Computed example of a mutant assay.
Amino acid sequence: MDWLTDNYVNILRGFGETLRLLGVSGALALVVGTLVALARVSPVPILRGVGAFYVTIFRNTPLLVLILIAYYGLPEIGIDFGFFINISLAMGTYTAAFVAEAIRSGFNGVPLGQAEAARAIGMPFTQSMRHIVLPQAFRLVVPPMASVYIALTKNTSLAATFGIAEATFRMRGLFNDYASQMIQIFLGISLGYILIVAVISWVASAFERRWAVA
């Protein structure tokens, strides 16, 4: 276990960077995904079209291609927030397409009469969504949203290719320094990812139990 005792600080820093990537891109995905989902169920045809276009483009484009565009393309046109933010933008906008579809499925699960009742008492679309439909939709989408964020956790490993010193990047460095312990290193780093996924699953289960409808 020399690889662990000699490098545990760097390993912890790597997983800290992984969590930072997950937090920034996950927050962006939640905000953008919610807005896209609202656009997809909007009564305005052009907004529905924009929402559908966004989901089609980002859901069907490989994440690695989006990261390449963000990493190399954005600085070329004068948009450069730093490599970490640029890569987080790529991951967040990609994941937002899946978040949007999960939330839209929640909208579809809310009885139509709820929105009709809101309109009947004079609520505009935005107000009925904010106070009536969205709270119920979020209750329904906890399991699929957990799956989306679990996938995002694993996708953060792609950042290692571009020099972000997250967990997978650290693992590659350990492979070079401790070639005879590659299996132990792989299992150890994998355990770290499993723990992150387990926490996401636990949080999702807690929300699901708390928001359960009797």
Results as ranks from 00 to 15, higher is better:
G14W: 11
A159M: 08
V110L: 08
L74P: 00
I194F: 14
S190W: 01
G16T: 11
F107L: 15
L47W: 02
F98R: 08
P62A: 11
Y94N: 10
V141K: 03
F175P: 01
D2Y: 02
F15V: 15
P143R: 05
V197C: 13
D2K: 12
P143Y: 05
F186P: 00
T93M: 12
M91G: 02
N155R: 10
F138W: 07
R48T: 06
V110H: 03
T5C: 04
T5H: 06
A167I: 11
F186Q: 15
I196W: 07
L89M: 07
F15H: 02
G49P: 00
V44H: 06
V99I: 14
Y94F: 13
N10T: 13
E76P: 00
G113S: 14
A39V: 11
V55A: 13
R172S: 10
L22Y: 01
Y54T: 07
R172L: 12
S180P: 00
A52I: 07
E208D: 07
G51P: 00
I150R: 04
F207N: 01
I121R: 13
Y193K: 08
F53M: 09
D2I: 10
Q181G: 02
L4N: 03
V141F: 11
G82E: 04
A165Q: 09
R20F: 12
I77R: 01
L21M: 15
M182A: 15
S180N: 14
A159F: 08
T161R: 06
E166F: 07
I87Y: 01
P143K: 05
L195F: 13
G73A: 08
A167N: 06
I103Y: 02
A37R: 03
P75N: 08
I79R: 00
I194S: 07
F83V: 12
L38A: 15
W3F: 15
A146K: 06
Y178L: 14
F175I: 13
N10A: 15
A97H: 05
Y72S: 08
P45Q: 11
Q184T: 12
W202K: 09
G163S: 08
I79D: 00
G51T: 03
T34P: 00
G73T: 08
I85L: 10
A29D: 03
G109A: 15
L22H: 04
P43F: 11
F175L: 10
G163N: 08
T161M: 15
N10P: 00
T95D: 02
I79N: 00
V36D: 02
Y94T: 11
N108M: 13
A102N: 04
A27W: 03
G23H: 02
L35H: 03
S88F: 05
P144E: 06
L21F: 09
Y193P: 03
P45E: 11
I87V: 12
L22V: 10
T126A: 14
Y94I: 11
I103P: 01
L140E: 02
S205L: 13
W211S: 03
R170H: 05
Y72N: 06
V24H: 01
R119V: 14
N176Y: 07
V203S: 04
A198W: 06
M129R: 04
L134W: 01
T56Y: 04
S42C: 09
V133D: 01
R209T: 10
E208V: 05
E17Y: 09
I77F: 09
A37G: 02
Y193L: 12
I87Q: 01
Q181P: 00
T34W: 04
N60F: 13
T61C: 05
S147I: 07
P143D: 05
